[in-house]
Amino acid sequence: MSETQIGFIGLGNMGGRMARRLVDAGTKVLGFDPNTAAVTAAGAEVAASIAVLIETCDIVLMSLPDSKVVERVVEGEDGALTHARAGQVIVDLSTAAASSTRRLSALFAEKGVSYVDAGISGGAAAAEKGTLTLMVGGEQEALDRLAPVFRHIATKVEFLGPSGAGHTTKLLNNFLNAVSLAATAEVMVAGKKAGLDLHQLLDVINASSGVNFATLNRFPKIANGDYLEGGLTSKLMTKDVVLYADLLHELGVSPLNTSGPMASFGLATALGYGDQISNRVVDALGDISGGVRLHDPV
Results as ranks from 00 to 15, higher is better:
N13R: 13
M14Q: 13
G15K: 01
A19C: 13
A25L: 10
V29E: 04
P34T: 06
N35G: 02
T36K: 14
A42W: 12
A44N: 09
E45N: 05
A47R: 10
A48Y: 00
A48F: 00
S49A: 13
A51W: 04
V52N: 06
V52K: 13
L53E: 06
C57S: 10
D58K: 09
L61D: 02
P65T: 14
D66Q: 06
K68I: 02
V69R: 09
V73Y: 00
E75L: 15
G76I: 01
E77H: 09
D78C: 09
A80R: 10
R85Q: 14
A86T: 11
Q88G: 05
T95Q: 10
S105I: 05
A106H: 02
L107Y: 07
L107I: 09
E110M: 12
V113I: 11
S114P: 11
V116A: 12
I120S: 15
I120H: 06
A125E: 12
E128W: 02
T131H: 09
T133F: 05
G137Q: 05
G138I: 07
E139V: 06
E141M: 03
D144R: 10
F150V: 02
R151V: 14
I153C: 09
T155V: 10
E158D: 06
F159Y: 10
G161N: 08
S163I: 00
G164N: 03
G166Q: 07
K170D: 14
N177G: 12
A178R: 10
A178H: 10
V179Y: 02
V179N: 09
S180F: 13
L181V: 11
T184G: 01
V187D: 01
M188S: 08
V189C: 09
A190H: 02
L196I: 11
H199Q: 15
Q200E: 15
Q200R: 15
L201N: 13
L202I: 06
N206S: 15
A207G: 15
A207L: 12
A214F: 08
A214T: 07
R218V: 13
F219G: 07
P220E: 01
I222P: 00
A223E: 04
A223K: 14
N224Q: 14
Y227Q: 04
E229S: 08
L232M: 15
S234R: 05
S234D: 07
L243C: 04
A245T: 04
A245F: 00
L248F: 04
H249A: 15
G252K: 14
S254C: 02
P255E: 00
P255V: 08
N257F: 11
N257H: 07
T258L: 01
T258R: 02
S259N: 09
G260L: 15
P261F: 08
A263E: 12
G266V: 01
G266A: 09
L267S: 02
A268W: 06
T269I: 08
G272D: 07
Y273D: 00
Y273I: 05
G274E: 05
G274R: 08
D275L: 07
V281I: 13
D283L: 14
A284E: 04
L285D: 01
G291E: 05
V292R: 07
V292W: 06
V292Q: 09
L294V: 10
P297A: 14
V298F: 02
V298L: 12
